Amino acid sequence: MADKCDLCVLGLIILSSLLTGISGADDHVFISSGENVRLSCNNALSDCKSKTTWNYNRHSATVELINKGIKNKDTERHERLSLESDCSLNIKNVTEEDYGSYTCQQWINVTGKDQQQGSDARVSLHVLHVSVSPSSSSSSSSSSSSSSQTEISPGRSVTLSCQLYSYTGFSCDDRVSSEGVELLWVNQTGVDLKTDSRYQILSSSDQYRCFIITLTTTLLNEDNNREWRCQLTHRNQLKTSVRYTVKYSGEKTVLEEPHNVSNTKVYQYH
């Protein structure tokens, strides 16, 4: 009996360590694309700025962003990065490509040799991004990859796709079951749009976007100034959201890329 109890305790220890590895080892930061984010270095030393290294990892590829306080200018995002006096990493105008695992290290010089002080401080950055497309349109679109225009009109069907870009080194099934993340499309009063029959809400996932929820609806004349919001909750706490507001003016409607203002994105139809 004692041997069986020992095995039970051992099993609980192993299970606990696995769950800690999935959801407790990293700080988890959730942000909407277009916002600025600050990643804390929890093992920071006093007067640490010249001693800090930040690395970025996604899909087993590690990139050194900052080496002992000096930015790596060979990275595409270097202009959006800055190191604070407390050694936290600032990322301006976050994009869906910024998601991944960030590691802060502290280095000191000991008898002429660099030596890491303390352990790595890891932060998992999860980015919420919403894209929109008319599922039926009748006009030309811009060839620019950064912006596009597609003529639409009331009566046309549009689809909003809300996606959480997330990478922690584990499978989607592990993340869904252990991290308690949920995406919802709600109206301006916070009511889940799944309860309204005019909206088609579908959920899906892929390898690196475990959480995708699309909203499809037909635009009505009374949709002028109507707000739809994709909100992300983590363990029943609201973490971030993206709002879309429809604006009508004139007979013709043109869909434009939104301006990134905080976590509010406004589509102007005119």
Results as ranks from 00 to 15, higher is better:
Asp3Gln: 12
Lys4Trp: 13
Asp6Thr: 15
Cys8Met: 12
Cys8Leu: 14
Leu10Arg: 11
Gly11Pro: 02
Leu19Gln: 11
Gly21Ser: 13
Ile22Phe: 07
Asp26Asn: 14
His28Leu: 09
Ser32Gln: 10
Glu35Lys: 15
Asn36Tyr: 12
Asn36Ser: 15
Leu39Trp: 08
Leu39Ala: 06
Leu39Glu: 03
Cys41Ala: 06
Asn43Val: 11
Asn43Met: 01
Asn43Pro: 01
Ala44His: 15
Trp54Leu: 03
Tyr56Gln: 07
Asn57Phe: 03
Arg58Leu: 05
Ile66Ala: 04
Asn67Ala: 11
Lys68Thr: 14
Gly69Met: 02
Lys71Val: 12
Lys71Leu: 10
Asn72Ser: 10
Asp74Tyr: 11
Arg77Asn: 08
Arg80Thr: 13
Arg80Ile: 05
Leu81Ala: 03
Glu84Phe: 03
Ser85Tyr: 10
Asp86Phe: 07
Asp86Ser: 04
Cys87Gly: 07
Ser88Tyr: 05
Ser88Asp: 07
Asn90His: 10
Val94Gln: 05
Glu96Gly: 12
Ser101Tyr: 00
Thr103Ser: 08
Gln105Asp: 11
Gln105Glu: 14
Trp107His: 06
Ile108Glu: 11
Asn109Gly: 03
Gln115Cys: 07
Gln116Tyr: 02
Gly118Asp: 03
Ser119Thr: 14
Asp120Thr: 14
Ala121Arg: 02
Arg122Met: 06
Val123Tyr: 05
Val123Gly: 02
Ser124Trp: 03
Leu125Ser: 01
Leu125Met: 06
Val130Asn: 02
Ser131Cys: 06
Ser138Arg: 13
Ser141Glu: 08
Ser147Cys: 09
Glu151Ser: 15
Ser153Ile: 13
Pro154Gly: 01
Gly155Thr: 12
Gly155Met: 04
Arg156Pro: 00
Arg156Thr: 13
Ser157Asp: 08
Ser161His: 00
Cys162Ile: 07
Cys162Arg: 07
Gln163Glu: 11
Ser166Cys: 04
Ser166Glu: 03
Thr168Trp: 05
Ser171Gln: 14
Ser171Glu: 09
Asp173Ile: 09
Asp174Ser: 08
Val181His: 09
Glu182Gly: 01
Trp185Val: 09
Val186Ala: 03
Asn187Asp: 15
Val191Pro: 00
Lys194His: 12
Thr195Cys: 03
Asp196Phe: 14
Asp196His: 13
Ser197Pro: 05
Ser197Asp: 09
Ser197Val: 08
Tyr199Phe: 12
Tyr199Val: 02
Tyr199Trp: 08
Ser203Glu: 15
Gln207His: 00
Tyr208Asn: 08
Cys210Phe: 10
Thr216Phe: 04
Thr217Ser: 07
Thr218Val: 10
Leu220Asp: 10
Asn221Pro: 06
Glu227Met: 08
Trp228Met: 09
Cys230Ile: 12
Leu232Ser: 07
Leu232Thr: 08
Leu232Asn: 04
Leu232Lys: 02
His234Thr: 10
Gln237Trp: 10
Val242Asn: 05
Val242Pro: 04
Tyr244Asp: 01
Thr245Gly: 01
Lys252Gln: 12
Thr253Ile: 08
Val254Ile: 13
Val254Glu: 11
Leu255Asp: 00
Thr264Glu: 06
Tyr267Pro: 01
Tyr269Glu: 08
